[in-house]
Write a protein that binds this DNA or RNA. Structure first.
Lengths: 214, 214
DNA sequence: ATAATTTATTTGTGATCACAAATAAATATT
DNA sequence: AATATTTATTTGTGATCACAAATAAATTAT
């Protein structure tokens, strides 16, 4: 019997999808930014077909909204929606963090510490995108350990939705300070204190917005 | 100035999408059921294009999985995944129910009572699909009052993912009994007891699976 | 000038096609 | 008979096109 393992190369649309998704999540696109099939298509030098799939997929995930005439744009979130999404973060992220806690060994904590210093750098250099990117990476690197893919998917889904709006908030306020609760999070991880971890993740998420919204 | 309001008729794919989505959520399709572009297309007498959009959209929502060769099928959930999704229900649904509580007036409670009797009927007649449908409607009619669209979207997203699997579980066990916590839920609503409501929603969701899984 | 109307352009939707890869069916080989 | 190989069929992907609806631009009328 001959077995040939295929590396099934990612389809054309997958590449475009991942790039756009990343841009949106990091706030590279501002709220209300509209995207067209043909525009996206010739940007990546492909036909309309894969471009269409990408936009619809992102729309299905809430990363884009579809106007009632079928146009695609990044969502413009009102305060109430933003607070709702943030409440979801406050609900989900402590839970997934708690699940990751038993599996969070030292190597992970070290890596998170490293990422945290990258956040500090982004603050100094006032680069909001790098800031958001490192900040999300800080959280994700922990959450990955929870081995709860469905939960992580929901969390990232929310990050996607708030991406563009968060960016403009950061620009309006200016990235003032490195998130002060991250050290407490790391401490809670080291001491395996689940209650403290939940609380710190919760306040980190909640305060992040509260700082911005007014 | 002349304003003409358009009733912008739903696109072709929207109709197909909603129907398929409903089928999946109610468990009309069993786990591992595979769907093809051409099959779906000629089932609805359309071209491949809208069929493709529908399948990809459902895949983006987790209602379908895409095999590594690009085929579409309803997900086959292992026990761990199923428990994770159920944990998410147990996390989200009490919260959204609590938010609905202040707005839950008597008319709503009456309607829920009515739906509950439909559940009882489905139990007697042993119609698992009607059972699931009425059961979800019971919950959704409450959650709609929360005015938390993002939260509701996540909840329905999870319902979508577990739809096919729940169906076979119901068939294996048989729909034995009308959910016993629903009356407690209604009681909690009437007395505006948030803590009790959270607890009852939680146990209703959790026990629902626990009953089935072993 | 401002608002209404007309014209031009852009846009998403759905259909059809060619193509390669994956699956199923049939045949041959051990 | 069971396994390997070949052939036939089915399948998703991406490209291109026509079309109608929506938007933008230009024009006209008030």
């Amino acid at each position: 019997m001959v077995i040939d393992l295929k590396i099934s190369e990612p389809s054309l649309q997958d590449k475009i999808y991942r790039e756009l998704r990343q841009k949106i999540m990091l706030g590279d696109l501002s709220p209300g930014h509209s995207l067209t099939l043909r525009g996206l298509a010739q940007l990546y030098d492909v036909s309309m077909t894969p471009a269409r799939e990408v936009l619809r997929r992102l729309a299905a995930e809430g990363a884009l909204i579809v106007t009632n005439t079928g146009r695609f744009m990044t969502p413009i979130l009102g305060n109430d929606r933003l607070e709702e999404l943030n409440a979801l973060r406050g609900l989900l992220e402590p839970e997934i963090a708690a699940r990751a806690l038993p599996r969070a060994h030292l190597a992970l904590i070290d890596r998170m510490q490293l990422i945290n210093s990258r956040i500090a750098q982004a603050v100094i250099q006032k680069e909001p995108i790098s800031y958001v990117q490192a900040n999300l990476e800080f959280h994700r690197s922990l959450y990955l350990r929870a081995q709860a893919p469905a939960m992580l998917a929901l969390v990232e889904n929310i990050w996607l939705q708030i991406g563009p709006t968060m960016r403009v908030l950061y620009e309006k306020i200016g990235v003032l300070e490195t998130p002060k609760h991250h050290v407490s999070i790391l401490a809670a991880l080291k001491s395996s204190d689940e209650q403290k971890l939940r609380l710190m993740i919760q306040t980190d998420v909640t305060n992040g917005l509260r700082m911005l919204i007014r």
